[in-house]
Design a binder for these strands. Structure first.
Lengths: 194, 194
DNA sequence: TTTCGCTATATCAGTTCGATATATGTCGGA
DNA sequence: TCCGACATATATCGAACTGATATAGCGAAA
C-alpha cells in the first residue's frame, strides 16, 4: 500500500487537509497499523490531484497559511474501492528497536534490560489507553474509531481497534508474568560467566 | 536503528555472509520484529568494512560466486555495545495492509472481509508455529532463538520469542471470538442501508 | 527436460522518512 | 508580562531503504 492509496483511504471518511491526514496516521484512526509522513503525503496529494482522484478547495485564513481541503472525486472513490478488491495485501511488518535490543540482554547491564522492558510496557499501556473506546469521545483526543455520517463507530474499525487492544493486553500480561523470571535468569547467567 | 547497526547485531552471534544475515531478518532470529533487505545489507557491510568495524574472508567456491564471510572486529563489537547503551530506542511501528483494508469493511463484499480475516489468522498461525520452540531444532527450519557457543538458547531471545508467541495467540483468540460477530454486524449494516 | 527455487553478490530506480524552513496564534509558567 | 513550547499548515530535500533485476550454477521436482 503506497501513500497515495493510504491518502485515498483517509479521505473516504470525508474531506481533510494534508495536515489532518497525517494526524490520522499519527494519533487517529490508522495510527496503530499504518504510517505516513508529511514528506510523502503532500506529494501524494499533488499527484492525486493531477490524476483527478481528489480535488481541493483553498480556504483563505487570516494570518495563517492557506488551508487546502481535499476531497475524493467519484473517480477517486471508485479507484480506491477497486484497489481494495484487487490488491493482495502485503505481509504485515512489525519493527521494534526495543525487542531487537532485548535480544542482546546477556551483553548489557541488567538495569538496562529492566528499563527497556518497562519502557516497552509503558508504551503499550499508553497505546491500549488510546484505543480504549471510553476515551474516544473526550475532546482533545484524536478518535481511534472511524465513524459514519451519523457519528456511529463503524464495525470494521471497532474490530480492528479491539484487535489492537487485545494485542496490547497480551503484551502487558506476558511482561507481568515473565519479566522477573528473565531478570533472575540473567543474574544467574552472569554469575556463572564472568 | 539503521541497517549498519542491525548488521553489527546480527554478527554478534558469530560470522556470517550477507546472504545469511538477510535470512536472520527474513526467517530467523530477528524476523518477527526487524526488517532488512539485501539492497541495504550489502552496502552496509561495505561501509562497515571501510570503517574497520567488520572484516571478511573470501571463500572461493567451485562453480559459484565467492562467499564473503564477515566477522566483527573488536572495535565493531565495542561500537555495537556502546550503541546499545546510548541509543534511545525508536517507537515501535506496526504496519498491516490487512487491518487497514478491514477498516473499510462496510464498503466491500462480506466474502472479502471474511477472506481478509482468514488470511490474517493464517499468517499469525504460521508465525506462531515458526516461533514455537518445539520447531526450533528441526533441520531445514531457521532457528528463531539466538544461541550461545554451547548451543543453549539465550534468555533474552527466549523472552522476545515468548512475547511474540503471546501476541500471535492473543490475535488468534480475538479472531475466534469476534469474527462471526463482525460478519453478522456487517450483514445487518448492509441490510439497513441499500 | 525444462522449470523452479536455493545459494550468493551486486546495483539501481523509485519510494519514503525525517529534518528543516516559513509563518503565526495560543497557552502555561517563571 | 514576556518567553518558550506547542499547535496549525504547507512545502521541500537529502539520506535511507525497499523491491526488482542481473548474473550464475546447482539440485530437485514436475
Amino acid at each position: 500500500m503506497d501513500v497515495r492509496t493510504l491518502c485515498l483511504g483517509a479521505l473516504m471518511g470525508g474531506e481533510a487537509t494534508g495536515y489532518e491526514i497525517r494526524k490520522m496516521f499519527e494519533d487517529g484512526t490508522f495510527s496503530h497499523f499504518q504510517i505516513a509522513s508529511l514528506g510523502s503525503i503532500y506529494p501524494a496529494l499533488t499527484k492525486l490531484t493531477q490524476d483527478g482522484l481528489v480535488t481541493f478547495v483553498e480556504h483563505e485564513q487570516e494570518n495563517r497559511p492557506d488551508k487546502k481541503v481535499y476531497q475524493l472525486t467519484s473517480e477517486g472513490r471508485r479507484t480506491f474501492l477497486r484497489t481494495l478488491l484487487q490488491t493482495r495485501p502485503a505481509e504485515d511488518r512489525y519493527r521494534s528497536d526495543i525487542l531487537f535490543m532485548l535480544t542482546f540482554a546477556e551483553e548489557m547491564p541488567i538495569e538496562l534490560t529492566e528499563a527497556l522492558i518497562d519502557e516497552f510496557a509503558a508504551r503499550h499501556e499508553l497505546m491500549s489507553h488510546q484505543i480504549d473506546p471510553e476515551n474516544d469521545d473526550k475532546p482533545g483526543t484524536m478518535s481511534t474509531y472511524g465513524r459514519d455520517e451519523n457519528g456511529a463507530p463503524k464495525p470494521g474499525c471497532c474490530f480492528v481497534a479491539g484487535l489492537g487492544q487485545a494485542m496490547c493486553e497480551a503484551t502487558l500480561k506476558f511482561i507481568r508474568e515473565n519479566k522477573q523470571g528473565l531478570l533472575d535468569e540473567l543474574r544467574d547467567f552472569k554469575a556463572r560467566k564472568p
